[in-house]
Simulated scan of single mutants.
Amino acid sequence: MNVFLHVLTQNILPIMLVVSFGYLLRRRLALDSGTLSSVIFYILSPCLVFSSLATSNLPADELAVLVAFSAVSILVTGGLALVLARLLHLDRAALATLLIVAMFVNAGNYGLTLLQLRYGDEGLARGVVYYVTSTIMAYTLGVAIASLGRVSWRATGQRIVRLPAVYAVLLAIVVYAFRLPVPAPLMNGITIAGSGAIPLMLVALGMQIADMQPEADGRLVWPAVGLRLLGGPLVGIAIAALLGLQGAGRSAMIIESAMPAAVINLILAAEFGLPTSTVARIVVFSTLISPLTIAAAITVLGL
């Protein structure tokens, strides 16, 4: 119980506090959340990705294993969502909704902050791998699922090439692989911008939650929340054991797989005509309940 309370108060409560700042800013001052999200998406997040990967001391083989974990865990969770959808006899729109909220988690705003607080730069470096892999899959596989045939592969490809994080990843891989020197002023500027991404991600999350309208048919909400918060970490544990992950890598990957549904799912739902109010409820409820489930997972597994 002492470990559980320590994780809850020392690692997760500070995150929720910053999220509440964003919520209050949006509610009280009606600040524009879209502008802040664009700054994070187009500038700060790519800088975080580049600075974390390009300067990473992770061995190439561990990096490959972390990417494999991230991709496989997302796909396996999607498989479980398909099974659940059949049991619930969901229609096409509800199926797409369940798939995206189960597969794509808040690995950035929430996950990276928690890993940095709990494990420092060692945890953050590994969490960034999950975040980048998840982001790329959300804008490729996630778009395909949300559209369910309504968007061509060409259109999907056009969306991908507009993602700043994709270019940050490619450049970081080149720098990492060939150990290319980056001029100190440039690298320092990128690092400073990247360090601002995490706190502003949390503020943006609070502002986005304040914008959500929770009215919806609740029949899909609780099965989806349960699959995300309980099924996610169980899948993470199994895949970590299968891939032989140990230490900080195992802890970071399991914690990322235990994160609540991502706000990006709301963007996908709005873009492709899925029930946004249902997605909003899943995101909000999974985020509010997640401190308890994540603290429990860390305590039980000794992460």
Results as ranks from 00 to 15, higher is better:
L66Y: 10
F69C: 08
R219V: 04
V3K: 10
L114M: 13
T55E: 15
A144V: 15
I239E: 13
V72N: 08
Q10C: 08
Q10H: 12
T287R: 00
W222M: 15
P46S: 13
A270V: 07
P185I: 12
L268D: 01
A295C: 11
R26Q: 10
P46A: 03
I267T: 09
R118M: 10
V284I: 11
A93C: 05
P260Q: 05
V49N: 11
T113D: 11
V76M: 05
A296K: 04
L114W: 07
Y110S: 03
T97G: 14
M103P: 07
S51H: 13
L242M: 14
A165Y: 00
A96G: 14
F21N: 11
D32F: 12
G79F: 14
G127Q: 03
Q213K: 09
V300D: 00
S33E: 05
G127Y: 05
A60H: 10
A238G: 07
N106S: 15
N106E: 12
Y167H: 06
V221Y: 09
E215G: 03
S277Y: 02
P14N: 00
L124Y: 12
L114Y: 11
V279M: 07
P46C: 11
G236Y: 06
S134D: 14
L234M: 14
A60F: 12
A262L: 04
P183G: 02
A125C: 10
G226F: 09
L115T: 02
A296D: 07
G149A: 07
F21A: 15
V143K: 00
S134P: 10
A262G: 05
R154T: 08
A204T: 14
V151C: 06
S38G: 12
L36Y: 04
D32I: 11
S38Y: 14
V284C: 02
S134T: 13
R126P: 03
T77F: 02
T9L: 08
I198H: 12
G247F: 03
P164Q: 06
Y139K: 15
G249N: 06
I264K: 00
T293V: 11
L99Q: 11
I237L: 12
S257C: 12
V49S: 14
S20R: 02
V175G: 01
A168S: 07
F4Y: 13
A261K: 00
S73A: 15
D121F: 00
A60T: 05
G236R: 09
A102V: 03
A258D: 04
R281F: 03
L268Q: 04
A85Y: 06
V143S: 01
L202A: 05
F50Q: 02
V49D: 11
G149K: 02
S56T: 02
A81L: 07
I192Y: 08
V279D: 06
S286V: 12
R118N: 08
E256I: 00
L163D: 01
A168F: 00
A280W: 02
G206W: 02
P181C: 05
A68R: 02
V263S: 05
Y167T: 00
R150T: 14
G78E: 04
A248T: 12
F69T: 01
A270D: 07
Y23I: 01
M1G: 06
R126Q: 09
Y23M: 04
L243F: 14
L229P: 05
G79N: 09
Y23N: 08
V300T: 03
S73W: 10
T55A: 15
I43V: 15
R228V: 09
A197Q: 15
N57G: 13
P46N: 13
A238I: 10
I192A: 04
